[in-house]
């Protein structure tokens, strides 16, 4: 017997690995864990592929990535607490903190202070707001697609996007009074 659709899977789903990794990286905030998440999510997607009915493969994959990332975050929260920090605090390893393979030092240096601030601000947003904004701005998904990926109604997507943007805008528009 042959597994149906492995070639189809590679053709339809694998082009979206960058999107998958970017979302995972923004959700879990750690390059190594993000790679684990994407690997697990892709293998899970392969097993679900028989039930994929066509349509937007990217949104479909991102939904699986998103759920896998949440599982991984929950597991990390249960399992260890900042073990690296605690372990290496006094050791010689402090200068050798876990390196982020995705972060090219030269590229990092070249980025301006403003960029770093925006990056940090985005990373500091509450998870459910950050995911909506990343899906909208970096993955360029429509409200409907974001709703599909996150499993919340479009109205909630809109209000989360609004809250996220308000938090990031230097001069957030206040209440309604003019």
């Amino acid at each position: 017997m042959t597994l149906p659709g492995v070639a189809d899977f590679e053709r339809v789903v694998l082009p979206h690995l960058d999107a998958a990794y970017n979302l995972a990286r923004w959700l879990v905030g750690d390059a190594t864990l993000a790679q684990d998440v994407v690997q697990d999510a892709v293998m899970r997607a392969l097993s679900y592929f028989g039930s994929f009915r066509g349509g937007d493969a990217r949104a479909w994959l991102l939904r699986i990535v998103r759920n896998t990332a949440y599982t991984a975050l929950a597991a990390r929260q249960r399992g260890g607490t900042a073990s690296l920090d605690a372990m290496w605090r006094d050791g010689e390893a402090t200068a050798l903190q876990v390196h982020d393979p995705a972060d090219d030092p030269e590229a990092a240096l070249a980025r301006s202070e403003n960029v770093a601030q925006l990056d940090q601000a985005l990373a500091a947003l509450p998870l459910e707001l950050r995911e909506c904004l990343v899906l909208r701005e970096l993955q360029e998904l429509s409200y409907k697609e974001i709703s599909h990926v996150t499993g919340v109604p479009i109205g909630t997507v809109m209000s989360r996007l609004w809250r996220a943007r308000q938090l990031l805008m230097r001069n957030p528009v206040e209440g309604g009074e003019t």
Partner: peptide, 21 residues
């Protein structure tokens, strides 16, 4: 955000690991 925030493309090693799996 689109101009300045990091978009993290999948590392080559991840591409390869997934194809291998």
């Amino acid at each position: 955000i689109r101009r300045e925030a990091l978009y993290y493309p999948a590392p080559d090693a991840l591409h390869a690991a997934i194809r291998s799996r």
